[in-house]
Design a binder for these strands. Structure first.
Lengths: 338, 338
DNA sequence: TCTGCTAGTGTTACCGCTAACAGCCGCCGG
DNA sequence: CCGGCGGCTGTTAGCGGTAACACTAGCAGA
């Protein structure tokens, strides 16, 4: 069967089911939606007819008529990140019981693309939108404002939400990590991260980090950025580069766990004394770390719970506060001396 | 701003733009869709009005009227797999130029859930569907058959497609890997994989693998399965378990790269002679492998190209053959002796 | 001058479904 | 015996757009 179905009949509509079962379209509609009173025998007849015909309702028409759409737009920067899939899991787990369905859009960290994705989604008149981050184009903010649906911005709460925000303070997260590092006695600290001007959360973490360093009279002794390629590999390479330039550096702070893991592998391969002579830390708390020879220090980003809470707000299960702050826990692992 | 927009006006429609710009709704529609002849001044007026009002078209109404929907349903088992995001990248890269938009649905490897997801998607009358795998419930197959749209089943071609299939032969992939392993002189071979009865592709690989072993008069000396948890960690644990049970095993074939990477880390930590005394191989060709201390042997699953070809078929850019087979390349890495 | 054509615009009739309301029937209490 | 009510079903009028066609003016060619 190579052709797109040599279908004899036209596409099925309520009318077809109605004729096949001998009742009005309205009654069929009621049966299929489980709404209103329909007698048991009629219900059976209709379901039988729908089943044998293989009728699939047309939600487009349904949505237009009822002015109700069971879709929730979810706008995220990337899928290859391991962090957003987990947010999605949280969202789905809550939405599953509600009849609402998530629809994902990916922006690749591009503001213009985000604007387009939001526009496209809004044009389907979803019941709500969940969007990563608080930074959007003016046009996007305007559209979201006008949409008249609940908007939940997730992951970050350092800024002004359009509607509601659920997330952690990345600035605070960076600060906390810096404080822990300083408390452990490290002094020559370097930063390794992504070259992404639009990854505002990574940026805010670094800002918070440097802020705390400054308060202790320290500054970063070096920094290194990358973009593209295997994060694990880049982590190794960047670490090698930093260590070559600064043999006396005693701590490496990575903007995410993946490059941190690469760095850790490099240090172990070089036989460096971790965490004695050199400490390392990442960010996110990804599951992958559990499998490494040594546990990288990290900070859990509350991804699952962020997804759940956001979905609960959309589903009306949560009293919506403007900002819902979650608090990540620092996991010292084996790469900060205790 | 905590309330879902205390909007003064009702939701905007074409009529609003039409009144604001002094032309008919039809002309506004033409301008906004860039269809038909509209004079430059009129076009300007309309665009200006739409922009200042902040009008977002209602695709639901548009789709109903035009009987055209620019959506392509993509049904995949999981997002946390690293393999499907790459397929998505391929799909998006092709669809981006066409006005078509992918909508993702996730099944978690559950056939019933897949059926539901397909039903939901079809009820939005998409222009095409891309679905991972060839195994579906009868009801799902029936619905897809009736839908009258192009259906592309991806990843796998060992079976009967509904419409079109784009993918690799996992059975052949398993066979090839076995042949390479045997050719390299390994004889005591064990398998480590996921406990997922519905991961048909992993199953087929194993079948092909054992088939080739049998042809050489060999059988698996041991096997180990897992489910859930950090794949990397599970890989370590399972590898430790197998090696404890069978100290003389000389090759470990993993059903995916992630557990393979865990196994590799374990072997290296134990100081085993890889690939001299023991060889390892995974499957997928994930980017992560580039960052490991040693390169795991693997087989690229052509994910990006599968996504592209599938999207091309949907977009009508590719003459649709029933089966489009792609051929993965074996990447021996450093874990099979050469 | 008239016809024919084209560019630009408006009119009409839906698309497939559902909200809202209008029947109809049988049964109850007064 | 009647009004009223609840259970069930049908009818009507859209939802907000677009296809298809109708119309108008302006201009070229006969």
């Amino acid at each position: 069967m190579t052709k797109p179905t040599p279908d004899p009949r036209h596409t099925l509509t309520l009318r077809d089911v109605s004729e096949a079962s001998g009742v009005s379209e309205m009654t069929v509609s009621r049966v299929l939606r489980n709404r209103g009173d329909v007698s048991a025998p009629t219900r059976e007849k209709v379901l039988e007819a729908a089943r044998t015909l293989g009728y699939v309702p047309n939600k487009i028409a349904g949505a237009l008529a009822s002015q109700r759409v069971n879709l929730v737009g979810v706008v995220i920067p990337s899928l290859s990140n391991m962090v957003f899939p987990e947010v999605m899991t949280g969202i789905s787990s809550v939405l599953d019981g509600t009849g609402l369905q998530p629809v994902v859009g990916v922006t690749n960290y591009l503001p213009d693309r985000e604007e387009t994705v939001i526009y496209e989604m809004l044009s389907w008149r979803p019941s709500g939108m969940i969007i990563a981050g608080l930074e959007h184009t003016d046009a996007a903010r305007a559209m979201l404002n006008r949409a008249g649906i609940p908007i939940v911005e997730i992951m970050d709460i350092d800024g002004d939400p359009i509607n509601h925000a659920v997330g952690i303070s990345h600035r605070r997260a960076g600060r906390q990590m810096a404080e822990a590092i300083i408390a452990a006695g490290y002094r020559k600290i370097a930063f390794l991260g992504t070259q992404m001007p639009n990854d505002h959360r990574a940026r805010k973490r670094l800002e918070g980090f440097e802020e705390a360093l400054a308060k202790a009279g320290l500054t970063l002794v070096d920094r290194e950025f990358y973009s593209g390629g295997s994060a694990l590999l880049k982590g190794r390479e960047m670490t090698a580069a930093i260590l070559a330039r600064n043999p006396d550096v005693d701590f490496l702070y990575y903007s995410n766990d993946m490059i941190g893991a690469g760095g850790l592998l490099h240090c172990l391969a070089e036989g460096l004394d971790v965490p004695g002579k050199i400490g390392l830390a990442g960010f996110n708390g990804v599951e992958l770390l559990d499998g490494l020879p040594r546990k990288l220090a990290t900070m859990d980003a509350c991804r699952l719970e962020i997804g759940k809470r956001a979905a609960e707000i959309i589903a009306g299960k949560l009293i919506p506060a403007e900002k819902l702050e979650l608090f990540p826990t620092l996991q010292p692992g084996d790469t900060i001396r205790g």
